[in-house]
Amino acid sequence: MSILSNIINAAKEVVEVARTTAQGMSVTLSHIPQKKDTVSYPDEPVQIYRRFRGEHFLDVNEDGKERCVSCFLCAAACPADAIYIEGAEDPRPYEQRASMDHRYAKVYQIDYGRCILCGFCVDACPTDAINHGHNFEWAVYTPGELVKDKDYLLGNKWREPDVTPTEKQRPLAAKQKHDKFNITLK
């Protein structure tokens, strides 16, 4: 008696397992032929959105002079205390100096081990010197390498990837036009 019921129960279990496995796998297998949303980074390049906040770059003005006047407002706004600046004076005339104003940043460092990419520094900047770039590939072997200096950040502007909206992004941009904010992307 007991042996028979044991066999029946075992058989029921086998059927149940087979049924649920098939049910689960049907979902999984049904996705295989579908179009993928994931990108197999780093074998394939990823598409970055224009308003993505990546590694910063320091901007220069139309004459090629550094925009930063070392006002320390970005450092003051930074909630993670990631920005370190030392100001200095360059008394030379505008044509000879590297910066827009005679006050310039002698040292400008951002510690990407601390930075949370909130963008407050960009909002705070009165001269539009600091901007978010789109680079996010900053894996390093030692934490010290995450501290980026001024030359690197100035160079970031020229390393910027092309972020013009792709065909894939265009419908999204068009959709945003009809959002409640009613913003038109140019």
Partner: peptide, 9 residues
């Protein structure tokens, strides 16, 4: 003290 630091720092 010129340009060296900011008072809030």
């Amino acid at each position: 003290y010129k340009y060296v630091a900011r008072p809030w720092d």
